[in-house]
Amino acid sequence: MIGEIVVVASRTDPASENIAERMMELALWEDEGLYHRFGGYRLVVLDERLINLRDLEGRLREMGLSPGLIVFASRHQAKDGTPRLCGHFPGNSGDAVMGGRPRELAVAAPGALKSFILNLTRAPPEGFEITVEATHHGPTDLSTPSLFAEIGSTEAEWLNSEAGCAVARSILKLEDLLVPAFIGFGGGHYVKRQNRLLMETKIGFGHLFSNYQAKDLDLSMIEEAAQKSGAVGAYLDRKSLRSAEKRRISEALEEIGVEVMNEREIGERYPPHL
């Protein structure tokens, strides 16, 4: 059981407002003043940018909320302009930050992210790619499991009501799937091999780090990722990582006792979820 799910939206973000509006249309919500309530869901709409939020959990407690999961309804922006519906965990693997603190990861929710992505694949709007993303940006100071649920990649998609409805519906059908949680390393920002494993096997992923983030990963960062993901295993996209990076990551995983498995081993031990 996830418990209370708090969906946080922002008036500064057109995709966020789109998702929040579609959520309001899809269910009968009760106005509680500072938030809206439907079943185990609470919808909170703020005026700040989501990635810059600090001490959100304290603010939610002041509203009388005690979430088991926080979902940020958000836009995704990308130069390639590809229509995407995506999800990821907040966190900064290095010193370069875009919201949140440097070298800090929020607590991941592997079962909820897998549920969200699978929900999206069941009725996707035409022309949209469904994918997880590498861990990035804030807020990072969260001890409550959280994830970002996003529409990308340009304003046309952010305002697309079908996309907003798909994300809203997928949030409202969230389950806390009991999955073996892995952490992942390598690949591009959209971690294609990890995405395929998430969709085609029983595993879920916690924190994911692309090859461009590998330089930031040391023992302490990898240990934090494993702890905040509840990881029982790790996957390395070896073709995308340099030899020194593979060695450093593998040695760190061995030291903290997290088993590394390849795609074949994952598929054999954790066959398709259906």
Score class of each variant (00 low, 15 high):
Ala78Asp: 12
His273Leu: 12
Glu224Ile: 03
Glu155Asn: 12
Leu26Ala: 14
Ala112Glu: 13
Gly33Asn: 14
Leu177Val: 10
Leu113Tyr: 04
Ala96Gln: 12
Arg269Cys: 02
Gly206Phe: 01
Ile249Gly: 01
Asp55Pro: 00
Ile171Glu: 11
Pro272Gln: 13
Ser210Glu: 06
Val45Trp: 09
Leu198Lys: 01
Ala73Lys: 05
Asn195Glu: 14
Leu50Ile: 15
Met199Val: 10
Leu172His: 09
Leu53Ile: 11
Ser229Asn: 06
Val260Gly: 05
Ser74Ile: 07
Leu28Arg: 15
Gly186Tyr: 06
Phe89Leu: 02
Pro102Thr: 13
Ser161Gly: 02
Lys173Met: 15
Ser66Glu: 13
Ala231Ser: 06
Thr135Phe: 04
Val6Asn: 00
Val179Ile: 14
His137Thr: 10
Glu259Thr: 13
Met98Arg: 13
Ser146Glu: 01
Lys192Phe: 08
Asp13Thr: 10
Ser66His: 13
Arg269Val: 09
Glu133Ser: 12
Glu104Asp: 07
Phe89Asp: 00
Leu43Val: 11
Leu178Trp: 14
Arg22Tyr: 07
Leu56Arg: 00
Ile151Trp: 06
Gly152Tyr: 09
Leu174Lys: 04
Ala134Cys: 11
Leu172Ser: 09
Glu265Cys: 08
Cys86Phe: 08
Ala78Ser: 14
Glu62Arg: 15
Glu200Cys: 10
Ile203Gln: 04
Ala226Tyr: 02
Met24Ile: 14
Thr82Met: 11
Leu105Lys: 00
Gly39Lys: 12
Glu17Gln: 14
Val179Cys: 09
Gly111Trp: 00
Leu219Asn: 03
Pro110Gln: 07
Asp216Tyr: 14
Gln194Lys: 09
Val260Leu: 12
Glu263Asn: 03
Glu62Leu: 13
Thr140Pro: 03
Glu126Trp: 07
Thr121Pro: 02
Val6Arg: 00
Met221Ser: 04
Val191Cys: 07
Ile171Gln: 10
Asn119Cys: 11
Lys173Asn: 15
Glu17Leu: 15
Arg11Lys: 14
Ala15Trp: 08
Ala15Asn: 08
Leu208Asp: 01
Arg22His: 11
Asp176Val: 06
Val44Pro: 00
Lys239Met: 06
Gln227Gly: 08
Met261Asp: 03
